[in-house]
């Protein structure tokens, strides 16, 4: 007499743009394994139960940022979220909040990609030295200045967690600002002035009211909330300096 295999129930958001009809939740019974993550369960569903389920994933080890989803209402990487955290209760899986939904668990991420490119997330130089001048040298202390902010996976969990992004879709958002800060702090970069326009305008850092959930959900310990507050301070200091300059200035 063998024990029945334990199962866990997943309630997954379904939406077909061409099929018509509103979104629904579909329930699947999936084998429970102690070492399975939610992504394993979803892959089982796709392979064995319902090949029509659409979702993004890639590395399955928490470095690519593809598999972000709302799991019981919290933005998480499905490859880093264990079934045993919820078992034996049902697990509700939805697409990342605050983004339009293309199909099932797949969100439209065009807005994030646009904002990411707006902050110029690369080394900006006034003039590129020739290759013969050799490599840029950087001390460990200089690396330490920005390293934390460079760990961003572009997983967009922070955008899903941020109520301000949900309320004000023009908000530049945590990850884009954190990456701008990463380059502003990089000793090799000379682009701070060129990033200021997009950071200092009303939908840059000033749409943030420090809810702080972006930092709470970040799987890479980037602390985007800190990046945003630091830019608020440096922008405010710039403003004071300009205001105090005799004769004013733009």
């Amino acid at each position: 007499m063998t024990m029945p295999e334990p199962t866990v129930s997943l309630e997954i958001f379904r939406y077909q743009p061409d099929g018509g009809g509103p979104s629904t939740f579909q329930r699947y019974q999936v084998p429970y394994h102690e070492d399975w993550v939610v992504l394993d369960a979803i892959n089982y569903i796709k392979d064995q139960l319902d090949g029509t389920l659409a979702y993004r994933w890639s590395c399955r080890m928490g470095v690519c940022g593809s598999c972000g989803m709302m799991i019981n209402g919290v933005p998480k990487l499905s490859c880093a979220t264990f079934l045993k955290e919820y078992y034996p209760h049902p697990i509700r899986v939805e697409p990342l909040a605050n983004f339009p939904i293309e199909r099932d668990l797949v969100i439209v991420l065009d807005d994030f990609m646009k904002k990411l490119s707006q902050v110029q997330p690369w080394i900006v130089r006034a003039a590129e030295p020739p290759l013969s001048a050799g490599e840029y040298r950087q001390t460990p202390e200089q690396l330490d200045q920005y390293k934390q902010f460079s760990m961003c996976l572009n997983c967009m969990l922070c955008y899903a967690a941020c109520p301000m992004y949900g309320l004000k879709p023009l908000f530049l958002g945590p990850a884009a600002i954190a990456l701008a800060h990463r380059y502003n702090l990089d000793s090799r970069d000379e682009g701070r002035a060129s990033r200021q326009d997009v950071l200092a305008n009303e939908h840059g850092v000033w749409d943030c009211t420090l809810v702080g959930e972006c930092t709470t959900v970040c799987p890479a310990d980037v602390d985007p909330a800190a990046a945003i507050q630091q830019i608020k301070l440096s922008t405010a200091v710039d403003w004071i300096k300009r205001a105090l300059r005799p004769g004013g200035g733009a």
Binding site: D197, W206, K232, T235, A236, W239, I240
Partner: peptide, 12 residues
């Protein structure tokens, strides 16, 4: 376009 007044209110 920079919104110039925000830093002032934020500092206050």
């Amino acid at each position: 376009m920079r919104r110039s007044a925000e830093p002032f209110w934020w500092l206050l």
